[in-house]
Amino acid sequence: MHLSRPARVALRVGALLGFTVLYVPLLLVVVNSLNPDRSSSWPPAGFTVRWWRDAWHSAGARDALWTSVKAGLGATAIALVLGTLIAFAVARYRFFGREAISFAVVLPIALPGIITGVALNTAFRTVLEPLGIGLGLFTVVVGHATFCVVVVFNNVAARLNRLPGSYEEAAMDLGASPLRAFRDITFPLTRSALAAGGLLAFALSFDEIVVTTFTAGPGVQTLPIWIFSNMARPQQAPVVNVVAVVLVLLSVIPVYAAQRLSSDTTAGSRV
């Protein structure tokens, strides 16, 4: 499409402005993690690495980080299995209710987290508690998996829709069992979509706070919960800033990896 020179310049300036707005709050967090003033006053009062030292020694932050990693891994594992199963059913079969299923998969992420959270909380307390399973890390994993399924589903379904089913049929015509056809043909072809979906699911779980609030038992503190309870405290706010900076820096790696892996689907839009 031919764009006039002024139009190009305008778009470039507009995009630059947009990126600036996206990154200014993040840069402010970096600045405040080095700001000696506890209440993050502007302009910064000086420079200190004290909060970085404190954060390194903060047991609360470390425990929370570890809890979040465990919850994220658990939720991702469940989401990978369930999301892939639904993706195969929807992409490879025509059956009654197919549309309804692909609609229902979207619901857990589209409906407000507070509704999902309260509904699961009530269900857990009425169904699981009589069985002796109280709210804890397990219920967090279940809650997160519920809304993580959709990203795995979308990634894998998009890939399957592009892969002709004839590859599997050819394998089976040549005598492979369905399991063998899956292992040797389908799985290698969908592996990168699975990985991309898994990474996004992990990231989604890692940052979730609302559903977590309602499904975590006492004593189970994921990182966002830790941040929420410490951010408002002047004593802890600078340490939270440090943790946030570290997380942004660390998140670049999985984000970049997911983008590379899913680059043959649509450029990382599969949030």
């Binding site: 990126f19 996206l22 990154y23 200014v24 709050p25 993040l26 402010l28 967090v29 405040n32 993050s40 502007w42 990231a203 890692f206 940052d207 706070i209 990182l223 966002p224 941040i227 929420f228 951010m231 706010a237 939270v240 800033n241 946030a244 997380l247 942004v248 998140s251 670049v252 999985p254 984000v255 970049y256 997911a258 983008q259 590379r260 680059s263 450029a267 990382g268 949030v271």
Partner: peptide, 25 residues
């Protein structure tokens, strides 16, 4: 591809931290 990563990064920066950054701003 780099620009896409630049768009995805703020998405995965903690929701709470971004909200609090705005509170400070």
């Amino acid at each position: 591809p780099l620009l896409v990563v630049a768009l995805l990064t703020p998405l995965w920066a903690s929701y709470l931290v971004k909200a609090y950054a705005w509170r400070v701003m």
